[in-house]
Simulated assay, not measured.
Amino acid sequence: MHGHTHDSFDYRVGATRMLANRRSYVLEGVAENARFDPGLTVQVPRGQHAASAIGRTSERFVHKMNQKYCF
Rank of each mutant, 00 (worst) to 15 (best):
R46H: 08
E59D: 13
A15P: 00
A20N: 11
E59T: 11
D10G: 03
N33W: 00
R22S: 11
D37P: 00
R35L: 05
R23K: 10
P38G: 05
A50I: 01
C70Q: 13
V42E: 05
Q48L: 09
H2A: 15
Y25N: 06
T5R: 07
Q48H: 12
R46A: 11
F71R: 10
K64M: 09
D10N: 11
F61R: 06
N33C: 03
T57C: 12
G29C: 01
R56W: 08
H49M: 14
G47W: 10
M18E: 01
Y11G: 02
M1G: 14
G14N: 06
Q48T: 13
Q67A: 15
R46F: 02
K64A: 12
V30H: 11
H4V: 08
Y69H: 10
P45W: 04
A20Q: 11
D10Y: 08
R35C: 01
T16H: 01
L27K: 09
G39R: 14
Y11K: 07
M65A: 15
S52Y: 02
Y11C: 06
N21D: 11
N21H: 05
K68I: 05
V26M: 07
I54N: 09
G39K: 13
Q48G: 09
T16V: 05
V30M: 06
V26S: 13
F36C: 02
F9A: 03
G3V: 08
A31Y: 08
T41D: 09
D7F: 08
F71P: 09
A15L: 13
H2L: 12
S24G: 14
G47F: 02
R35W: 07
K68D: 07
F36Q: 03
Q43E: 15
Y69T: 07
L40G: 07
S8F: 07
Y69C: 09
H6I: 00
G55A: 09
V30D: 03
T5C: 08
H63W: 11
R60H: 02
Q43H: 15
